[in-house]
Amino acid sequence: MTTPFVQLKNVSKTFDVSAPWLNRVIERKPQSFLHAVSDLSFDIQRGETLALVGESGCGKSTVARLIVGLYASSTGSVMIDGQDMRIALTSNNEAARALRRKVQMIFQDPYASLNPRWRVADIVAEPIRTHRLIPDGAALDKRVAKLLGYVKLTAKDGEKYPHQFSGGQRQRISIARALASNPEFLICDDPTSALDVSVQAQVLNLMKDLQREMGLTYLFISHNLQVVHHIADRVGVMYLGRVVEIGDKKEVFGAPQHPYTRMLLDAIPDLHMTGKARTPVAGEVPNPLNPPSGCAFNPRCPRKFEPCDKTRPELVNIHGRQVACFAATSAQNSATETVMTLS
């Protein structure tokens, strides 16, 4: 097997959220650190879509910013196509520029991700100008028109300002900008959360089409499981900065092993279930400044038992996916034991 296109190895990100030094000295407060992402490892194959899901504050967006190089990881490494993303942050040589060109991002809020004072054509042309891919002139205009065409806008729209477009159109402009530098890997930080349902489908289908045409690799971050189901090949479920279950979409959605995945799936509103009470996800996300000991999910877990609040479960291969849960592992073990005693 070849090396994966994107590879995260034991990536952690810690933010120093301590009070200012003077306050700490006077009020005798300790330094405090927020572990936004802890010990995260996963791979993405070329041409694949991996979706990360989880509740607000579980570190999804931090993962996106770590991969794209907006944050430097505290420990661990992010490798893209065999190159450490760290060089894109620290150096400015040809390799770093090429790496930056390869990885682009689509942001959550289409109302904030486009500079309101720039014309759309300039916004879309920015990556091209920055990396000096095409000199200014007719060739650049043609390229911008083509990019706008990819996202079903016309060359004439390039003359307008972002505020003259709707949310869905803006998100498409954002996609056109992300495509401008011929990237291979797109990180989508919840690109549909600010859009209407009808527009969501439009943007998602567009993204799927583009992926097929250009062979793009996606990391798709979302809290919306239906959107994820629509677009992803593989799904990773995050809880409090850690992946608790990751595997093929069909496996994870079809037979969730982690109780948290099950809770998320049970909470989805469904037209067929109208009138019936749904199971809400019980409890609140714990404070990430002071996470529970053992498995971070144990205070909310219906299947909590002996070791859950003492030791942290590691990701284990079960039923064709990886799960970090003692309950799932012991069920698997007892099942194998039964099979063994029977045979």
């Binding site: 990885v103 486009l114 500079n115």
Partner: peptide, 26 residues
């Protein structure tokens, strides 16, 4: 802190350019 500044950073625009071409006009 707006996303268009982060977008420019992801693209690889230099800090001085972001300061004068993105932030200053706004």
């Amino acid at each position: 802190s707006k996303e268009y500044v982060q977008a420019a950073r992801v693209i690889g625009v230099s800090q001085t350019k972001i300061m004068f071409k993105h932030v200053l006009p706004n």
